[in-house]
């Protein structure tokens, strides 16, 4: 498996043996990049992993968003994507007064939800699932959504490390918004610093180990 930075219009590889995946198109015998990113060749499949740009929702993603409007059957949510998201009341597992939706989540409130469906125009969200719902207290920071896999680490190794060392509750939205809640503001600011440490070093090998050292040094 090889990885390389490619730019739009660049030939990644030639040959009939390969199949074009995300961000790759075929032009005659050549596979050409259709966007900027890391080209990854795994087996026969060639695809591009984005390095930058806005968050594009995918089904099943956990996202953090802000309520920006209340309609008769649900909430409009801004999830930092090209389109607005909508959370209908039938996707809310809790019982509440459907004539006063503001009681459950008012304009400006932050919620954590799952992407249920992506339509041609807009995104549907659901709150059915563990840990989903309105976010109370704590603080929210924003990172680039393409750095989220780094913040989470392999099977959550990085985020668990930060949670443990900073004694904070952390929810990482796939859209790059991260919710932090600790005992004190200092704990929250510390975990924010740790996350910034991770996102500012996107190309470092063995980052989990380095973060561990950094956290232990700063903790003193």
């Amino acid at each position: 498996m090889s990885r390389e930075v490619v730019i739009p219009g660049e030939t990644i590889i030639a040959g009939e043996d390969y199949l074009p995946g995300d961000g790759v198109r075929r032009e005659g015998n050549e596979l050409v990049a259709s966007r900027f990113g890391l080209a990854e060749i795994s087996g026969r499949l060639v695809r591009i992993i984005p390095l930058s740009g806005v968050y594009i929702p995918r089904r099943g993603n956990i996202v953090i968003g802000r309520v920006i409007d209340i309609t008769f059957n649900g909430w409009s949510i801004d999830i930092n994507a090209p389109y607005l998201a909508f959370l209908p009341i039938i996707e809310c597992p809790r019982f509440f007064n459907r004539y006063d939706l503001a009681e459950n989540a008012d304009i400006g409130d932050m919620i954590v939800a799952k992407v249920l469906n992506i339509k041609t125009r807009g995104v549907d969200l659901t709150l059915k699932g563990r840990g989903l719902g309105k976010l109370e207290k704590g603080m929210i920071i924003a990172v680039n959504s393409n750095k989220v896999p780094r913040v989470i680490g392999k099977e959550g190794s990085m985020i668990n490390l930060i949670k443990e060392k900073s004694k904070c509750d952390i929810i990482v939205g796939q859209n790059g918004l991260i919710w932090l809640k600790g005992e004190t503001i200092e704990d929250e600011l510390f975990s924010e610093k740790a996350i910034k440490f991770v996102t500012e070093r996107p190309f470092v090998e063995g980052l989990t180990e380095k973060t561990k050292e950094w956290l232990e040094e700063k903790k003193k």
């Binding site: 259709s34 966007r35 393409n146």
Partner: peptide, 11 residues
């Protein structure tokens, strides 16, 4: 535009 991750044919 390339840096913003916009789908592009070429530069």
């Amino acid at each position: 535009l390339a840096h913003a991750g916009i789908p592009m044919k070429e530069i």
